[in-house]
Computed example of a mutant assay.
Amino acid sequence: MVRRTAELMGVILVTSRSFSDGDLDLVGRAAQAGHRILRGPAHHDFAELRPLLHGADAWIAGTGAITDEHLEAAPKLRIVARYGVGTEAVDLEAARRRGIPVTNTPGANADAVADHAVGLMLAALRFVPDGDRRVRVGDWSVRRGRELGAAVVGIVGFGRIGQGVAKRLSGFGPRVVAADPYLSADVIRSNGAEPIDLDELFRVADVITLHAPGGQLLVDAGRLAHMRRGTVLVNTARGDLVDEAAIAEALRDGILAGYAADTLDGDTAAQGSPLLDPALADRVIVTPHLGAQTTQAVDNMGSISLADALAVLRGEEPAHPVTAR
């Protein structure tokens, strides 16, 4: 076999922090295929990325924005392989115009996120983080929680992750309802939930978990006003699905008993979020995008995104293309 020199190797730009950070050596896999991994910043700041994009043949991209400006700066780029599922931060039309396929990793982290969503439900219902904080300062007083099996759980978005949540909830025994405009009632029923209208879901559920795509506002002051008092809201999807100021007000008013999320709108730039008010710390749980951070999910997302990138670099079609909206 002829070995390629470093000068002849293709460059795969990677801007996902956890790529090849699991059990699999994906950097080595890329090298065996004749390509070099080049690391870039996960936030996709254009000034920092521009010199890296100039020589990139493929881009395994994290959650940062991918704009027409980014693509213009990458004259050799042949594929954008999203490391994850969501593509709302990608200018798909700009990629289509340039003939650059965009892929994602459907299902790769579904089990991990479903696990995390159920974990956040339990943590919020039983005041787990708050109990830990109080014990550490000598406060052993008890806050009475609620059992998951006694709740009506509403799942907003019933794709792979939402269905995974329903499967996990079956062991606890709650009534599970789900709203998804893209699925038939029969499909929802066959996956362990009762089909329901979205507005009705917000009226009847004791626990609501969001698994819808970003780029839309699902929880605002109007919807919050019609919820049951004491509802717990879980968001392992996208920060922009909720009006954070309205959520904070609902927590103060008792409409919401708890908000548990794996994201904030703007994430690390959102340190001024009203949900981080210390006065709400006993009712708000926020984790730093832990949902997909399992060894198995990291390996799955990395393997799928790399396989699609290598396929395109070989002149083949990728297995997981995403079409422009």
Rank of each mutant, 00 (worst) to 15 (best):
G164E: 04
D180M: 00
T231V: 15
I196R: 10
R133P: 05
G131W: 05
A205P: 07
E249R: 15
R134M: 10
S184M: 00
V153D: 06
D180R: 07
I188Q: 02
G215K: 11
S170P: 00
G230Y: 04
V165W: 07
V204A: 08
D111S: 14
H116Y: 13
G145E: 14
R146P: 00
A193M: 04
G239R: 11
A108P: 14
A246C: 03
G154K: 10
A205T: 08
L125H: 14
A221H: 03
F172R: 02
T103A: 11
R134E: 14
G164A: 04
G149E: 04
D115N: 14
L120Y: 04
I208R: 09
A112M: 12
V135Y: 06
V219I: 15
L122N: 10
G138R: 09
R223K: 15
R133M: 13
V156D: 11
S170Y: 00
E147N: 14
G162M: 12
V137W: 11
A246L: 05
G171V: 02
P213H: 13
A112W: 07
V242T: 14
I208G: 10
Q216C: 00
S184E: 09
P213F: 12
V177Q: 01
D199P: 00
H226D: 09
L210M: 14
N191G: 01
V113S: 14
A179H: 13
L120M: 14
G138A: 13
H211E: 12
E147R: 15
V242Q: 10
D206Y: 12
V152C: 15
R126A: 06
K167D: 12
V142G: 01
D111H: 14
V165N: 02
L198V: 15
G214F: 09
V176W: 01
G164T: 02
L201C: 12
V219P: 11
N191M: 02
R143D: 13
Y182N: 13
V204T: 15
A237K: 04
G192S: 11
P181I: 09
G149D: 03
E194H: 03
G164L: 04
G164H: 07
P195I: 02
I208S: 06
R229F: 01
R238G: 06
A221I: 05
D139M: 03
